[in-house]
């Protein structure tokens, strides 16, 4: 069953086309991630779905109903903002219950629903504090709680983790995935971090300057990128992409090979280069090879094959792992 459908959606700000025709189906209960570089229109697309921005043309269908003209509060969505957007003058309890009190629900029901959400998010002891007195991760949870109590069909999250430090971000990734499994609601999640996209998504939508570049599961995008853009965006470290003479020699316009799909050798191989820079990440080592007539080539090795700075090495692609984009 489809939960959210976008049909030839476009959006212009004055003369600038920001969204240039987007068609997308998101299934009920799916964790869908919009990913793309800064300024590609991810937030705008999310805000159009939320109803905070009106589309220039196209349809938005949520749960089988065309909501293009509907108020945000009537769309069955809830949104978590990058800045959290908690009401500073209200306690955590009133922040979470704000929407319910606007809907004029009885006090007792608001109380039970707020406390149920707080229990899931481990916010119980913090209910009477003001947002000022919370840590970043706790504010994040309050923002999610405020979305949860509305019992929405679709959660919209705009870079919710980008204000947190690395360790907390990793923890919240897991918590959010757990929460998604527990609630079973559809979630649309915007990020420019491909690691978040790979680790959390059921479905990744790669956006590039207002257009959908490719849609697929994380592994589909990793193994079968449709365009050089997707190939370069998904996976870390970035895929090696070559155009010009190197690509011509391979019979294509763009040739790509991932660093983890290169084998290094001291005796012989396809390309010869010198190790310009070596990055030790612990289990892995990233080698930046300077290859004559080709440019820079990244390769990943393990500690079994120690590389010294300035060493001359041979690199070869693993067969069947190369990408040739026409």
């Amino acid at each position: 069953m489809t939960d959210v459908a976008l049909k030839s959606l476009t959006k212009s700000f004055g003369l600038v086309d920001v969204i240039k025709g987007v068609d997308l189906d998101i299934k009920s209960g799916e964790f869908c991630v919009f990913v793309g570089p800064s300024g590609c229109g991810k937030s705008t697309l999310l805000r159009i779905i939320a109803g905070l921005e009106s589309a220039t043309a196209g349809e938005i269908i949520i749960d089988g109903r065309d909501v293009s003209g509907a108020e945000p509060s009537e769309r069955g969505i809830a949104m978590v903002f990058q800045s959290y957007a908690l009401y500073p003058h209200l306690s955590v309890r009133d922040n979470i219950g704000f929407g319910l009190s606007l809907a004029k629900l009885p006090k007792a029901e608001i109380r039970t629903r707020v406390e149920a959400a707080a229990a899931i998010l481990q916010l119980g002891p913090l209910l009477d504090r003001k947002p000022k007195a919370l840590s970043g991760g706790q504010r994040q949870r309050v923002a999610i709680g405020r979305a949860m109590v509305r019992d929405p069909k679709v959660f919209l999250l705009d870079e919710p983790l980008s204000n947190l430090d690395a360790a907390l971000r990793a923890q919240m990734r897991i918590e959010l995935t757990d929460l998604h499994r527990r609630l079973g609601a559809t979630m649309i999640y915007v990020t420019h971090d491909q690691v978040e996209a790979m680790t959390m998504a059921d479905k990744i939508v790669v956006l590039n300057s207002g257009r959908i570049e490719q849609v697929g599961t994380p592994m589909e995008l990793y193994n079968h990128p449709a365009t050089p853009f997707v190939a370069g965006f998904i996976g870390s470290p970035k895929m090696n992409l070559f155009e010009g003479a190197t690509a011509k020699a391979e019979g294509c316009t763009t040739y790509g090979i991932r660093p983890e799909h290169i084998t290094l050798s001291r005796t012989g191989g396809k390309w010869q280069g010198t190790a310009r820079h070596v990055e030790h990440l612990g289990a892995d080592t990233i080698v930046y090879l300077k290859v004559e007539g080709m440019g820079e080539l990244l390769a990943r090795t393990t500690e079994d094959f120690p590389v010294a700075h300035g060493e001359t090495l041979f690199a070869s692609p693993i067969a069947g792992r190369e990408f040739r984009f026409a």
Partner: peptide, 9 residues
């Protein structure tokens, strides 16, 4: 904050 309130109805 305004937008969060709009979403809250």
């Amino acid at each position: 904050l305004d937008e969060a309130a709009i979403i809250d109805g």
